[in-house]
Amino acid sequence: MNSQNNHEVIVSGIHLELTPSLKTFVREKAERLFRHEERIVRVRVELECDRSAAIGMQFKAKGHIEIHGPDMNAVVQTDDCHKAISMLVDKLDRMLQRRHQLHRVKRNHPHAVELNSTLPKVVT
C-alpha cells in the first residue's frame, strides 16, 4: 500500500458478516481510485447479500464517491463477493476517468461569451 494511507474508505455489510480479509480487500482495491483522483473526500462501499431461493446467492456492491462536485454512485450485482468488489472498483474508475476527460476538454476548449449590451466608450 501507499505510504500516505490517510484516505477515508467506509465499508459496511448488509445481511453479510464483514471479515477482516474482506475489508482489507476492499481497501486495497479502493486505493486505485485515490491514485487517479486526489480530491476524493470519501469512498463508501456497501456489500449486500441476497439469499433468496429463486436466484441463489447474489452479492450486490454499491459504491459512493464523495468528491468536490457531483457525487458518483455505482451498483454491481454478481454471484461472487470478490468479483462484485472488483467490478465495482472498475466501474467507479471508468467514471472518474470520464469525469477527468470531460474536465480536461472543457478546460482546453473554452467557449466565447457574447455580451448583449454595449460597452461604454473610454474618454481620453
Rank of each mutant, 00 (worst) to 15 (best):
M72G: 07
R107A: 12
E38M: 07
G63M: 01
V41G: 04
L47Q: 02
F59P: 07
S21T: 15
F25N: 09
K91L: 08
L92V: 10
H15Y: 00
E66I: 06
R32D: 08
C49M: 03
V43E: 03
I67E: 09
V76C: 15
K23P: 07
V43K: 01
R35C: 08
G13R: 12
H100W: 06
L18M: 03
H100I: 09
R32K: 14
E38K: 13
D50A: 07
N73T: 06
T78S: 12
L22G: 02
A84D: 03
A61T: 07
V75E: 04
I65G: 02
R35L: 14
H64Y: 00
H103I: 07
C49E: 01
M72F: 10
Q77N: 11
V43D: 00
H82M: 09
K106G: 13
I67Y: 01
R104Q: 11
A74S: 06
I14D: 09
T19P: 12
F34R: 11
Q58F: 13
M87F: 03
K62S: 01
K62M: 00
E46V: 06
L16R: 04
I67Q: 03
I85D: 01
R27M: 10
G56L: 03
Q97H: 04
T24E: 15
E48W: 10
T19I: 15
A54D: 15
A30N: 07
G56P: 15
V43I: 02
L88W: 05
E48P: 00
M72C: 04
R27G: 03
L18I: 04
E38Q: 13
V41W: 15
H36N: 12
A30H: 08
T78M: 05
L16W: 02
K29C: 04
H68K: 07
M87A: 08
R51P: 10
R42D: 11
S52N: 09
L33Q: 04
L88Q: 11
R94M: 12
H100Y: 11
R94P: 02
R94L: 14
I85C: 05
T24F: 13
R32L: 11
V41P: 04
I55W: 08
I40T: 01
K91N: 10
L88M: 02
V45W: 00
D71L: 04
R107F: 05
V41K: 00
L33G: 00
A30S: 03
E28M: 05
R44T: 03
L102V: 15
E28H: 14
R27I: 10
E46R: 07
I14L: 03
F25K: 14
R51S: 06
L96Q: 02
L33S: 06
E48S: 01
V76E: 05
L96H: 05
M95A: 12
R27A: 04
F25M: 01
A61S: 11
P70N: 09
D50E: 02
A54Y: 09
K23E: 07
V45L: 09
K83P: 12
V45S: 13
H36A: 12
E48R: 05
P70M: 11
E17C: 15
F25L: 08
A84W: 14
K60E: 13
R44I: 08
P20I: 14
R39Y: 12
I65Y: 01
Q77R: 05
L47H: 10
F34S: 06
S52V: 11
K62C: 01
I67S: 08
I67D: 00
E48N: 03
K91A: 08
S86L: 11
C81Q: 15
C81M: 07
K106T: 12
I55R: 15
